[in-house]
Simulated scan of single mutants.
Amino acid sequence: MTSHPAVPLLRTTPEGLLWEPSERWVRGRRGDVTVVDSRHPVLVWEPRLPVPQYAFPRADVRTDLLRPAQDPPRGARAGATVHYDLEAGGETRPNAAWVFPADDLAGHIAFAWFPGTGAGLDHWYEEEEEIFVHPRDPHKRVDALPSSRHVRVEIDGTVVADTRAPVLLFETSLPTRYYVPREDVRLDLFEATSHRTRCPYKGTADQYWSWRGGGAVPPNLVWSYPDPLPAVAAIRGRLAFFDEVVDVTVDGERRERPVTPFSAGLRV
């Protein structure tokens, strides 16, 4: 049998884009209209962006709903020069799609994902599971492991959580998060808020709390996933803290406050 050298999945374009094919079945919808239905998407990483995006073969996209952009952005999307507005459901979403300026990806179309942009599609699915915020990175790992470590959390010297039954959540490139049983948290020291966030790896955190004690403590520093994705089911209903702004002691050892992509937003 003749052997052939393996073809690397992750490839680089002269423009500095990284990309690799995916075998996931991906669909994107605008309202009740399926705009994308692809079994051959590719994942694309732009320079200086830590998360991937999907690009789809043109044949898998409802290109009849796309129009040349009326006001294309400048200097965005790693030099993309072709942008499209999306017309569907009686609404126009500007700059909802674009083509990356790379020969390898010339036959593919990408869509905006990030929330709050007013562009892109409403719902995305990998196989039968809805996904949020951005595609999940196949090179990133998230593990939720029950533990017997002793974890204590303090704010301005006040102990707000103390447990010997945490779940440790290990996520590539982020500090360990300690998910504490609700009964081991002094929730009487916090006030529930209406804040909510979504994570492509964990689901929807629709329970947040802010510190009642005043001082230079940012809001929404405690959160919970009442119904997390199956892969991290162990964190269900537990509470976690932004280690960036609280003091965490694990088995008697005080942890340094980490600096993360969330740090800039955790300011009073």
Results as ranks from 00 to 15, higher is better:
127 E>S: 13
130 E>M: 01
94 P>Y: 14
104 D>F: 06
136 R>S: 06
130 E>G: 03
107 G>E: 10
129 E>S: 12
107 G>N: 07
140 K>Y: 13
135 P>Q: 10
95 N>M: 11
149 R>G: 01
108 H>G: 00
105 L>Q: 01
148 S>R: 12
146 P>W: 02
115 P>D: 03
108 H>Y: 12
136 R>Y: 01
139 H>L: 06
110 A>M: 07
149 R>I: 00
95 N>Q: 11
124 W>P: 02
107 G>H: 04
97 A>L: 06
122 D>N: 10
116 G>M: 08
95 N>V: 09
119 A>Y: 05
141 R>L: 12
136 R>D: 04
106 A>D: 10
118 G>A: 14
101 P>W: 03
121 L>E: 15
135 P>D: 08
150 H>Y: 07
108 H>L: 13
128 E>I: 09
117 T>I: 08
118 G>I: 07
119 A>H: 11
103 D>Q: 11
148 S>W: 00
139 H>R: 08
141 R>G: 02
105 L>W: 00
125 Y>A: 14
146 P>A: 09
121 L>S: 15
119 A>N: 12
97 A>S: 10
152 R>K: 03
94 P>T: 15
108 H>P: 00
129 E>Q: 14
125 Y>K: 12
143 D>R: 13
144 A>F: 02
147 S>G: 03
125 Y>V: 12
149 R>T: 06
131 I>M: 11
120 G>N: 09
115 P>Q: 02
96 A>Y: 02
107 G>M: 02
117 T>A: 13
130 E>Y: 03
137 D>G: 03
131 I>P: 05
114 F>Q: 15
111 F>Y: 12
141 R>F: 11
151 V>N: 03
146 P>K: 05
108 H>N: 10
94 P>G: 15
137 D>R: 04
139 H>F: 08
151 V>K: 05
109 I>Y: 03
122 D>G: 05
148 S>Q: 09
113 W>K: 04
106 A>T: 05
111 F>P: 09
143 D>M: 12
112 A>M: 15
109 I>L: 09
150 H>T: 09
154 E>P: 04
142 V>R: 01
107 G>F: 00
120 G>S: 11
135 P>V: 07
120 G>E: 03
150 H>L: 06
112 A>G: 14
122 D>H: 11
105 L>R: 02
141 R>H: 13
101 P>N: 01
94 P>C: 14
145 L>R: 12
104 D>C: 07
107 G>L: 07
124 W>C: 06
129 E>L: 13
154 E>C: 10
154 E>N: 09
99 V>F: 06
127 E>V: 11
138 P>S: 13
149 R>S: 11
102 A>L: 09
98 W>S: 00
154 E>V: 08
152 R>H: 01
102 A>R: 08
99 V>M: 06
138 P>D: 13
